[in-house]
């Protein structure tokens, strides 16, 4: 029996729920050297700010037992170049809906960037990144207070026409409260989680491995945390959730959807295995067969 992998996010139909996560897939076309990326449901593009950013000092990467810490610091060419140079390149090799990941350091900047990206036809969902742990002032600051989260969501909602998904940080005490505030602010969906603030120390030098000392921890080690937060947020809001964090195989996707995710994003797994998303998509029907699932949408939130 042919399995139905399709899902719908606020009216945007995806052939399957597999979306590479922002920051781990560049602007997509790098991966076209590895496989035909049109097998993906969508792609969440690299976090984009108004101005070009080099990002943080090196080293920006630290290995962990089952994951890594990154402190990229939102390196990107800036919104105008993303639109004029990166989008045309990805358009050539990817024909499906794209998700723009928008960052900022002030409400005005978020509004400016979202207004611009909203006009791009292939961008069908805007992901508002209020959860980057690697930049001061802004980034995560908007994602750790319900009031600030609501305020930025409302402001962006006013200038955009595309579904607006707010990406949350797990570095808070009450994730459900933040998600609810975003929903009240007009968010069409929630993406969670971004990375957990973490660090490593080099035993030889006795200094932090990362130049910025701390960074964002992700990879399979964080899966249970991400799953728990998706489960909690599912009970708190009535808008779709994209589950992210530690997913590396088809079983994880099923688990995340049972917790309440309508789609999932795959981050770190792409870095260690560039074929991760393709392999998960190929495995999904087999795992669905094993667990007697005909349609993926049937299982969303079924763990509640």
């Amino acid at each position: 029996m042919v399995k139905d992998l399709s899902v719908t996010l606020s009216g945007v139909k995806l052939d399957n729920p597999i979306i590479p996560a922002s920051g781990t897939f560049g602007f997509g076309y790098e991966f076209a050297d590895f496989y035909d990326i049109n097998c993906l449901g969508s792609i969440s593009l690299k976090g984009t700010t108004k101005d070009e950013r080099y990002g943080n000092k090196l080293p920006r990467i630290a290995e962990c037992e089952r994951g890594l810490i990154n402190s990229i610091g939102l390196q990107n060419p800036g919104i105008d170049k993303v639109i004029s140079e990166e989008l045309p390149k990805i358009r050539k090799v990817f024909k499906k809906p794209l998700i723009a990941n928008i960052s900022g350091f002030s409400i005005e900047e978020y509004v400016h960037n979202c207004e611009k990206i909203d006009k791009e036809e292939q961008i069908e969902i805007i992901e508002l990144n209020i959860s980057c742990p690697n930049v001061n002032h802004g980034g995560m600051a908007f994602g750790t207070s319900p009031e600030a989260a609501k305020e930025v969501t409302e402001a962006v909602k006013k200038v955009t026409t595309k579904p607006l998904y707010v990406k949350l940080t797990p570095n808070v005490t009450n994730i459900a409260e933040i998600a609810k505030a975003c929903e009240q602010g007009g968010a069409d969906g929630i993406v969670l989680i971004n990375t957990l603030l973490g660090m490593r120390i080099n035993l030889k030098t006795r200094k932090p491995v990362i130049a910025n000392k701390m960074g964002g921890f992700s990879g399979p080690a964080i899966f249970p945390v991400a799953l728990r937060m998706v489960y909690q947020v599912y009970e708190a809001v009535n808008i779709p959730i994209i589950g992210v964090g530690g997913i590396e195989k088809a079983e994880d996707v099923i688990e995340m959807m049972l917790a309440g995710a309508t789609a999932v994003e795959i981050g770190a797994a792409n870095l260690v295995n560039p074929y991760a998303c393709k392999e998960i998509i190929e495995e999904l029907p087999k795992v669905m067969e094993k667990y007697k699932i005909e349609k993926l949408t049937d299982i969303i939130g079924k763990a509640h």
Binding site: G23, T24, F25, G26, E30, F31, D33, K46, Y54, G55, L58, P59, R60, I61, A62, L68, N70, I72, Q75, V209, N270, L271, V272, P274
Partner: peptide, 14 residues
């Protein structure tokens, strides 16, 4: 340089 991916995806080595 310390690398996250080695093929241009993560900007860890810029």
């Amino acid at each position: 340089e310390r690398m996250g991916c080695g093929f241009g995806a993560c900007m860890g080595c810029s």
